[in-house]
Simulated scan of single mutants.
Amino acid sequence: MSRTVGVMGCGWLGLPLAEKLLKSGYKVRGTTTSTSKVEQLELAGIKGFKIQLHENAIAGDITNFLSGLDTLIINVPPGLRGNSGSNYVSKINLLLNEIQKAAVKNIVFVSSTSVYGSAEGEITEDTILRPETESGKQLAQSEALFQKENNLNTAIVRFGGLIGRDRHPVNHLAGKKGLKNGDALVNLIHLEDCIQMLITIVQKRYWRTIFNGVYPLHPTKRAYYTNEALKRGLPPPEFESSSSKRNKKLIISKNYLIKLNALYTSIIS
C-alpha cells in the first residue's frame, strides 16, 4: 500500500492538513493555483503542483499529481458566492474522470453542512439533503458523483462553520446591533479538529462513510458570540429579544459516535 496522499487545494485548511500528514509519515503532494504557492509547498517538503479546475479542462499536470496516490483529499470549495455562474459540478466531474484514469481508489471529499439547507431539529448524516444555496446544491450533486462510483472508496465530510487561526465570525459581528436569530444554535468546528478528523479517516481507512464535522457543543448564538467577544476585548454583538423555537438546528454525527469517538481536541474558540 502506498503511503502517498494528495491534497487538492492547499489553502486555509489544505496547507496545514498537508503539513500534518507529512509529520505523520506520509509522502504528500499538494495543489495550488499560484506559482508562488508551489514554491511554498516545496519548501515545506510537499511536492507541489499548480493545477486549476475549469469547467471544460484541467490546467496543469493532473496526470503526474494523481499517479500512484493511495488517497486523494479533495478540498476545493465551490466559490459560488455573489453572482458567480461557475459550474462546480462540471469541474468535479472532469476531476473524477482523471481519478478513474489514474486508478486512485481512496477519496476524501470535503463538503459542507449547507447541503442540509434550512432543515431544523437534529441533523445527522441520514437527514435528507435539501440544499437551498447554489453552493449547497452543487456540493450535493458533486457528492452524488462519487457515491455512485462503486469502484471508489469515498468518505464524505460535511463541515460546519470553520473557525481557527485568523478566522472567526465574532470579528465581523462585534459591536453590531439588532442581530436576528440569537436563540439559534451554533454549529462550528475548529481548524485543528478538521485536520485531526481528516487524518483519522485516512489512517483508519474509514471509507464509504459520511461524517458531519461539527463540534459537539451547541450554545446559542447570543451566548456564544457574547462570550467570544468579551474574551477578545471586543464589544459584544446585540441580538434582538426572541423566544422563537425556530432555528434550532442541531448538527451531530452519529458516525463520529461509532467510529471517531473522542476525536475533538479543540474548543470552539
Rank of each mutant, 00 (worst) to 15 (best):
T4N: 08
V7I: 15
G11K: 04
G14F: 04
P16S: 14
L22G: 01
K23F: 07
K23E: 15
Y26R: 09
T31S: 11
L43Y: 10
G45E: 11
Q52A: 13
L53S: 01
A59P: 00
I73P: 00
P78G: 09
P78F: 10
G79M: 04
N83Q: 12
N87F: 06
Y88S: 08
Y88A: 07
V89E: 09
I92H: 00
I92A: 02
N93G: 00
N97M: 03
A102W: 01
V104C: 09
V104W: 02
I107W: 15
S111H: 03
S114F: 08
Y116A: 06
A119M: 04
E120M: 04
G121W: 09
T127H: 14
R130A: 13
G136S: 01
G136L: 01
K137S: 01
A140E: 08
N150Q: 12
T154F: 10
A155S: 15
V157Y: 11
R158Q: 11
G160C: 09
R165M: 01
R167G: 04
N171A: 09
N171E: 09
L173N: 12
G178V: 04
G178T: 08
K180P: 01
K180S: 15
D183E: 15
V186I: 06
V186T: 12
L188G: 00
L191I: 13
D193W: 11
L198A: 02
I199S: 05
K204S: 10
K204T: 05
K204G: 03
R208W: 04
R208S: 14
N212M: 09
T220N: 06
K221N: 14
Y224V: 07
Y225F: 15
T226W: 02
N227F: 08
R232A: 05
R232T: 05
P235R: 09
P236S: 12
E238Y: 12
F239T: 07
E240I: 15
S241C: 06
S242L: 02
S244D: 13
R246K: 14
I251M: 08
N255A: 12
Y256L: 13
I258W: 06
A262N: 14
A262C: 03
L263N: 07
L263V: 04
I268G: 00
